[in-house]
Amino acid sequence: MSGRPQLTLVSRSYCHLCAEMEVALGALAEELQFAVEMVDVDADPRLLAHYDEWVPVLLHGQTELCHYRLEVSKVRDYLSRIG
């Protein structure tokens, strides 16, 4: 990969699925060399309106990679395509 991609995890503090995805992303980010920015859906009215019941959501820019659960194969495939 050229550079280090920046993925965004849209989540909330009291969400167990969000916590699970954050932990799973930690290991994957280290392996695949991407950065993860955490964004609190409840702190941004625009994100809340769009993603409220969908969190956690993993994004690269405007591209939604997965929600609810980390889809490792989908993230791997996507990162290899944007290479």
Rank of each mutant, 00 (worst) to 15 (best):
S2W: 00
R4I: 05
R4D: 03
P5L: 14
L7Y: 02
L7H: 05
T8L: 08
L9S: 05
V10M: 07
V10C: 13
S11L: 12
R12Q: 13
S13I: 11
Y14K: 08
C15E: 05
C15P: 02
C15G: 08
C15W: 00
H16P: 14
C18S: 15
C18A: 07
E20D: 15
M21K: 09
M21P: 01
V23R: 12
V23Q: 10
L25V: 03
L25A: 06
G26T: 08
A27L: 11
L28G: 05
E30W: 00
E30L: 07
E31I: 00
E31S: 07
L32C: 06
L32T: 07
F34A: 05
F34W: 00
F34R: 05
A35Q: 12
A35H: 03
E37H: 11
M38G: 01
V41T: 06
D42F: 04
A43S: 15
A43G: 09
D44E: 09
P45D: 14
P45R: 10
L47Q: 13
L48E: 14
L48M: 13
L48D: 13
L48F: 15
H50R: 15
D52T: 08
D52F: 13
D52R: 13
W54T: 07
V55N: 01
V55C: 02
V55T: 07
V55D: 04
L58S: 03
L58Q: 05
L58K: 01
L59H: 10
L59V: 05
H60I: 10
H60P: 08
G61L: 12
Q62R: 15
E64Q: 14
C66W: 02
H67G: 04
R69E: 01
L70Y: 07
E71K: 13
V75W: 06
R76H: 08
Y78E: 08
Y78P: 10
L79W: 01
L79G: 05
S80Q: 14
S80K: 13
S80Y: 10
I82W: 05
I82D: 10
I82Q: 13
G83Y: 04
G83Q: 14
G83F: 04
